[in-house]
Design a protein around this nucleic acid. Sequence first.
DNA 1: GTACAACCTAAAGCTGACTTGAGGTCAAGT
DNA 2: ACTTGACCTCAAGTCAGCTTTAGGTTGTAC
Lengths: 153, 153
Amino acid sequence: MYSIGEVSNMFQLSVPTLRYYDQQGLFPNLKRTKSGLRSFDSHDIESIRIIEYLKKAGMSLKDIRVFIDWCHAGDSTLIERRDMFLDRLDSVKAEIEELNRVQDLLTFKSWYYSQAVKEETEERIKEVKPEEMPADIRRAYENTHADLPCWKA
Amino acid sequence: MYSIGEVSNMFQLSVPTLRYYDQQGLFPNLKRTKSGLRSFDSHDIESIRIIEYLKKAGMSLKDIRVFIDWCHAGDSTLIERRDMFLDRLDSVKAEIEELNRVQDLLTFKSWYYSQAVKEETEERIKEVKPEEMPADIRRAYENTHADLPCWKA
DNA sequence: GTACAACCTAAAGCTGACTTGAGGTCAAGT
DNA sequence: ACTTGACCTCAAGTCAGCTTTAGGTTGTAC
């Protein structure tokens, strides 16, 4: 249905990247034209969509290949697949949690440097105490400047 | 104050990794004992804390080094530093957005495979329509199975 | 005084995910 | 017929971020 170039345009994936994925076994059912050109059908397209999600979920191409092989193997691998998704779900939830803390740090630092730029020096802002910060900035600050567990050891 | 081994334990960073960071210029003020051992003071520790955050914010060691050099250069680089943090903030917000969609996909897939495991086959669940899904699953499903812009082209 | 753990350097090696390069095929347009 | 552009393969190259290896020093504990 679609040539490799068309698919490359649909997703933000280069043509060599798609060939590389194929080589890594991510498209086990990919058809070819008589003359040997790759021909992606809607099932292949859907699998690229899922591959993109799994990559964002922190899986390596190798892990994704294992998953694809499980799918190919049929109902005997349902448990593995369920457990894989539950595991990824936990991990992504944790990552979102973590990024929220990162966001707080960046919010604080953006405020800090915006103040510093206004005053043309870091001098004064460096000494500001939590009580003197806007409420949201203070929240972000206290959320990311807490003592680490390791300090207590 | 702290040896490299102690610092390695505080953060989850191996001793060679800390030496590698030092080599990449991430600790420009790191002191040594008379016999040449690295000696991390509280300022160095704080900078590792920040480095960890910046890595999670998607910066490479090279980018982080540039930032550290800016800090060292003083007030003349305040604008660059502010802009860097504003830029990272945008990027992390976008990443959180994206991970929320990933989470929705994983939520749907976890439900799907949990059902399949219960029924010991994918047969029936494969045919389920959005209307028959629990509300939260349906939301997750519709949030991640929408047509991609590329389909419309 | 000697064993031992923890440190040091410099250089080479590794992994994942691509990218690049060289050399070739194929089908459509002029 | 011939040029062009999109495709093909296979092999080698790249990059980040570590890790490993080899060989050497230091300083406390027995």
